[in-house]
Amino acid sequence: MLPYFTEENSVETVNARMSEGANPRLVQVMSALVKHLHAFAKEIELSQSEWEVAIDFLTRTGQICSPERQEFILLSDTLGLSMLVDAINNRRPAGATENTVLGPFHVAGAPEREMGASICLDGKGESCLFEGRVLDLNGNPIEGARVDVWSDNAEGFYDVQQPDIQPKWNNRGIFTTGADGHYRFVGIKPVSYPIPDDGPVGQMLAHLGRHPYRPAHMHYIVTAPGYEKLVTHTFVGEDEYLDSDTVFGVKNTLIAPYERLQDGLAEWRSPFDFVLVQENTSAER
């Protein structure tokens, strides 16, 4: 007969209730969750009032969620869990471009644009030429790589946040590499911006003395047949929030140079090469 629940045997008692016929992976995940959750409560000797605050926080987090806003993802981001899951699932060989979080503002179906075209449709911000190559681990160019790009505007908002203000598809586009693996487009030099902080997650950050800002960055999804999908950003060097990104998305290898241009197509130039990994290469390591 199973023992009744006590403080000492709490983990064993709860986990023993799981059916032998349950999905093995579900049992593994839930058993570990119970183990660590109970250990957390015991370590800090969680009070009844603190537990009630936590329940209220989670309730309000769910209540503010909508098709346009996912506060639980925001919570995961600001606790570093999103980046940890991303890191676990995107281990790559040395020399390959690193992943980082997708973020909430990617939109499928962005327009295919001619190589070198501008993605800035509102004419605001400091123009920037983004260019580089898509390569394999041996330095060979990859033909037919699709480079899906998006960024905020000069005020720090994405077009989907301001549908009545910004043109649709502002600062978005897809470019396909030729035989030389080269990509090239004109956008704006991104600016840093705060995540939505008017809800429970913002209140949590304020109580912890943390700011809600993300350093300036350009988003990329790079795909090519036979290669692993790359989801990443390039960050503006010298940004004041590089070492305190509220979602922990910065990696040293993703900080890109921004060179001031004296004349030509844009005010700035940001060169960056993307190195893709062939499918199954990472799994073999």
Rank of each mutant, 00 (worst) to 15 (best):
N9F: 02
L75A: 04
L74W: 12
L58S: 05
H36W: 11
L74D: 07
L33Y: 14
G21M: 08
E8D: 08
E20V: 13
C65H: 07
Q28F: 13
S31F: 01
P67E: 01
I44K: 01
E68R: 14
L26C: 09
A41S: 11
Q70M: 15
L33M: 13
S19W: 04
L46V: 02
S31V: 02
S49G: 03
E8T: 07
E45N: 05
S49A: 00
R17W: 10
E68S: 15
C65R: 06
E52G: 01
E20T: 12
L74C: 11
Q63I: 08
H36A: 11
E50R: 01
P67I: 02
K42M: 02
E43D: 13
R69A: 13
A32G: 11
L46S: 03
C65Q: 07
A41W: 03
E12V: 03
Q48C: 05
E12L: 01
L26D: 10
S10T: 12
S10C: 11
V14C: 03
V34S: 08
P24T: 01
F40R: 07
T61C: 03
R69E: 14
G21D: 08
V11Y: 01
V11G: 00
A41I: 06
A22N: 12
T13G: 03
L26F: 08
C65N: 07
S47F: 00
I73M: 15
A54S: 05
L75P: 00
R60K: 03
E68V: 13
L58M: 04
E8N: 08
R60I: 01
L37F: 12
Q70L: 14
R69D: 13
G62Q: 09
I55A: 08
I64N: 10
E43W: 04
S49C: 00
E71T: 09
F40Q: 10
L74I: 13
S10Y: 09
D56S: 05
N23E: 06
V29E: 06
E71C: 13
S31P: 00
P67R: 00
I55E: 09
H38T: 15
N15T: 07
Q28G: 12
M30S: 08
E71Q: 14
R17E: 10
A39H: 08
S76C: 15
G21A: 06
R60Q: 04
S47A: 02
E68Q: 14
S47M: 01
P24F: 07
I64E: 15
E20G: 14
G62E: 08
H36M: 10
V34R: 07
R25M: 13
F40E: 10
L58T: 04
E20N: 13
Q63C: 11
A32V: 10
I73R: 15
C65L: 09
A22S: 13
S76F: 12
F40C: 08
E45R: 03
Q63N: 12
K42F: 03
A41H: 06
E45M: 02
E50G: 04
M30D: 05
K42R: 05
A22C: 14
D56G: 03
F40D: 09
A22I: 11
E68N: 15
T78R: 02
T13D: 04
A41C: 12
P24W: 06
I73S: 15
S19R: 07
A41K: 04
V34P: 01
T59L: 11
M30H: 07
T78W: 02
G62V: 06
I73K: 15
N15Q: 05
C65T: 09
L37C: 12
L33E: 12
I55G: 04
L46C: 02
A54Y: 04
P24H: 03
K35M: 10
